[in-house]
Simulated scan of single mutants.
Amino acid sequence: MEFGFIIAGLAVGFIVGMTGVGGGSLMTPILLFFGIHPATAVGTDLLYASITKAGGVLVHHKHRNIDWKITGWLAIGSVPAALVTVAALHQMRAETETINLVIKHSLGIALMLTAVAIVFKQHLLRFAQRHVGVSSDLHGGLQRRWSTIATGAILGVIVTLSSIGAGAIGTIALFLLFPLLPTARLVGTEIAHAVPLTLVAGLGHAGLGNMDWGLLANLLVGSLPGIYLGSQLTGRMPDHILRPVLAGMLVVVGGKLVF
């Protein structure tokens, strides 16, 4: 069983490094398949994602694939939202599993819709450019900044409850908010933002007792080299190949979460 967790960590780490999506979306269903209790799977996966993606940040920063300004705006919204959600979970322990179940099913549908949106990225770009406006300033004005902060707050709640969504929902949100952002830079930015978010949420779940430290160690043995290898491919993989990879992965995971 331990060897199985190491292989799972390796596979998920590789996908996260290459696409910026898949940490919670893949790992939480895998842990449930192995028979891990849902609350423990969510808590363990959050800290796993934080540590794993921290390794990916180093590689993406080296390749200049992170927009730290956008990362900061997202974190301004997501980290306080995660703290508030953790506090709420402490007050309603008995209902946590029900909330997780509802979030997982809802997010499964969202993942499949996101996959469709990624496939039609060029149409979305044209739509975003008409309504957001194309200028020499990639980051846009004050309205786009507040929209990014609000997006971060929504992600903070969803990720804390389910461990899923930092990459998938955040990716499509960035597609729409920043249509001029290259895919490789978008991936790196999402990974960088997920680190503080999942760390805060994971420590909150650890305080609730939703943590298996031995399981976490096994996952990290595989995931740290996996995300390093995957991150090496992000900038080299053509956009027309990367988008179908993202979409195909989200369809599979979304279907598993719903059905």
Score class of each variant (00 low, 15 high):
Leu32Ala: 07
Leu32Met: 08
Phe33Asn: 08
Phe33Met: 12
Phe34Cys: 07
Ile36Pro: 02
Pro38Phe: 03
Thr40Lys: 08
Thr40Ser: 12
Thr40Asp: 09
Thr40Phe: 12
Ala41Cys: 06
Ala41Met: 01
Val42Asn: 05
Val42Ser: 05
Gly43Ser: 02
Leu46Gln: 00
Leu46Ala: 03
Leu47Glu: 00
Ala49Leu: 09
Ser50Val: 02
Ile51Glu: 05
Thr52Gln: 11
Lys53Phe: 06
Lys53Ile: 07
Gly55Cys: 08
Val57His: 03
Leu58Cys: 13
Leu58Lys: 13
Val59Gly: 04
His60Pro: 00
His61Phe: 13
Lys62Leu: 12
Lys62Val: 05
Lys62Arg: 14
His63Trp: 10
Ile66Lys: 03
Ile66Thr: 03
Asp67Gly: 02
Asp67Pro: 06
Asp67Tyr: 08
Lys69Gln: 11
Gly72Trp: 07
Leu74Gln: 04
Leu74Phe: 12
Ala75His: 06
Ser78Gly: 06
Ser78Asp: 02
Ser78Cys: 07
Val79Glu: 02
Val79Gly: 03
Val79His: 05
Pro80Leu: 04
Pro80Cys: 07
Ala81Trp: 01
Leu83Val: 12
Thr85Ala: 08
Val86Met: 05
Ala87Ser: 13
Ala87Asp: 12
Ala87Pro: 04
Ala88Glu: 04
His90Met: 13
His90Arg: 15
Met92His: 15
Arg93Gln: 14
Glu95Tyr: 15
Glu95Gln: 13
Thr96Lys: 15
Glu97Ser: 11
Thr98Phe: 15
Thr98Arg: 14
Ile99His: 08
Ile99Arg: 10
Asn100Ser: 12
Val102Phe: 11
Val102Thr: 11
Val102Ser: 13
Ile103Thr: 06
Lys104Pro: 04
Lys104His: 14
Lys104Gln: 11
His105Glu: 09
Ser106Glu: 07
Leu107Val: 06
Leu107His: 03
Gly108Arg: 00
Ala110Met: 14
Leu113Met: 12
Leu113Trp: 09
Thr114Asp: 02
Thr114Pro: 01
Ala115Thr: 02
Ala115Ile: 00
Ala117Ser: 15
Ala117Val: 11
Ile118Pro: 01
Ile118Trp: 01
Val119Cys: 06
Phe120Ile: 01
His123Asp: 11
Leu124Val: 00
Phe127Val: 09
Ala128Asn: 04
His131Arg: 12
His131Ser: 10
His131Cys: 04
Val132Cys: 10
Asp137Cys: 05
Asp137Ala: 09
Asp137Val: 07
Leu138Asn: 05
Gly140Asp: 02
Gly140Glu: 00
Leu142Trp: 14
Leu142Phe: 11
Gln143Asp: 13
Arg144Pro: 02
Arg144Val: 08
Arg144Tyr: 06
Arg145Asp: 05
Arg145Ser: 10
Arg145Trp: 12
Ser147Glu: 11
Thr148Gln: 00
Ala150Cys: 12
